[in-house]
Amino acid sequence: MKRLWAKYRQSRDEDHEELCTTNALVVAAVAEAKASSGSRRLDSQPGSTLNEERFRESRGNNMMEDYFVERPVFSEEVFRTRYRMSHNVFNSISSDLCRYDQYFVHKSDAVKKVGLLPQQKLTCSLRMLAYGAGADQWAEYCRIAKSTSIEAMKRFTRGIVNLYSAEYLRAPTPADLRRLLAKAERIGFPRMIGSIDCMHWQWKNCPTGWAGEYSGRKRVSTIILEAVASYDTWIWHAFFGMPGSCNDLNVLAKSPLFDELTTGRALRSNFK
C-alpha cells in the first residue's frame, strides 16, 4: 500500500493545481452558502457602543510583509500549508473577485479612513472555509469584526459560485473521461474514474426539533456533503443537504450521481 501511495504522489499533475483548487473552492462555497444561518449585520444606531480601534491598516501592512511582498517572512511552502493553495491561485481569485464585487477593492470610507485590504478579507474567508473557524476567530490576525467577517464570507461564496461554477461544477466530457481512465490505469487503479466519500458539516443553529434527524454517532447536528474527486483532487460531483444521521449508502441512494446513467443519457465509458 505504501508503494502504491508513493507512486500516486509522484504521479500528481502539477499543471492542474490552479484549476483543482478553484474547483474545490466552488464546492466549499456552495456548501457554505447553503449552510449559512443568515446572520444579519447590525448598522450603527444612536446610543450604540463605539467601534473598537482595531489598527486594521497596520495589521494589513504586517500581513503583506508576512506573505505578499517580494521577500515575505513566510515561504511559499508555509503559504500553501496555511491557505491551502499557491500564491498564483490566491492572486488570481483576488483579482477576479475585485473585478466582480467592489466590496473587495481597497478604498477609503466617507471620513477618508483607509479600509481593509482585499488580502485581509480573502484571508478571513478562506481560513473560515479551510479550518471551519468561527466568524470572530480571525479578529486577532486579520483585525476584522465579526459582522464584517460574516459579510465578507457571504460575498466571497457568492462571488466564487457566480464566477467559477459554470467551469468547475460540470459533468466530465469524453476527453475528461479518457484522461481520467488513462491516468488511473497508469497509477495502478484501472477502469476507475474517481473516489466517492461523504463529509459532515456541523450545523450549529440546527432547530431543536430537527436535532435527532441531523445528529449522527458524534451527537452533533450535521449536514452531509457527498463528493466525487479524481486523482488530481478535481471534484466532479457534489451533493449537499442530507441529514447527519444518514450513512453513506443512504446518501448515495438519494444522490443524483447515477441519474444520467439510469436514464440512458450518460457518456459511454467503461468504469467500476
Results as ranks from 00 to 15, higher is better:
47 G>L: 06
47 G>P: 00
48 S>Q: 11
48 S>R: 09
50 L>D: 08
51 N>F: 08
53 E>N: 12
55 F>W: 08
55 F>K: 15
61 N>L: 10
63 M>H: 02
64 M>L: 05
64 M>S: 01
64 M>Q: 05
65 E>K: 03
65 E>P: 00
67 Y>E: 00
67 Y>G: 00
70 E>C: 05
70 E>H: 02
71 R>Q: 10
72 P>D: 02
73 V>I: 06
77 E>C: 07
78 V>I: 15
78 V>W: 00
79 F>W: 00
88 N>M: 09
89 V>I: 06
90 F>D: 07
93 I>D: 12
94 S>C: 13
94 S>T: 11
94 S>F: 03
95 S>I: 01
99 R>Y: 14
100 Y>N: 13
100 Y>Q: 13
103 Y>C: 11
103 Y>P: 10
104 F>W: 06
104 F>I: 12
105 V>L: 13
106 H>A: 07
106 H>E: 15
107 K>P: 05
108 S>Q: 14
109 D>L: 08
109 D>S: 05
111 V>T: 04
113 K>G: 07
114 V>L: 15
114 V>P: 01
119 Q>A: 15
121 K>E: 07
121 K>A: 05
126 L>D: 04
127 R>N: 14
127 R>T: 14
130 A>Q: 02
133 A>M: 11
134 G>K: 11
134 G>F: 12
136 D>W: 06
136 D>N: 04
136 D>Y: 09
137 Q>R: 09
137 Q>I: 02
138 W>D: 12
139 A>T: 14
141 Y>S: 05
142 C>K: 01
143 R>P: 02
146 K>E: 14
146 K>D: 10
146 K>R: 11
149 S>G: 06
149 S>P: 01
150 I>K: 06
151 E>C: 04
152 A>T: 03
153 M>G: 02
153 M>I: 04
153 M>P: 04
156 F>G: 10
157 T>A: 02
159 G>T: 08
160 I>L: 09
164 Y>K: 08
165 S>L: 10
167 E>W: 08
167 E>F: 12
167 E>A: 07
169 L>D: 13
171 A>S: 08
171 A>N: 13
172 P>R: 11
173 T>L: 11
175 A>I: 13
175 A>W: 05
175 A>P: 13
175 A>N: 10
176 D>A: 07
176 D>Y: 03
177 L>P: 14
177 L>V: 09
179 R>H: 15
179 R>P: 01
180 L>P: 07
182 A>F: 03
185 E>K: 05
187 I>Q: 05
189 F>A: 08
190 P>D: 05
191 R>V: 03
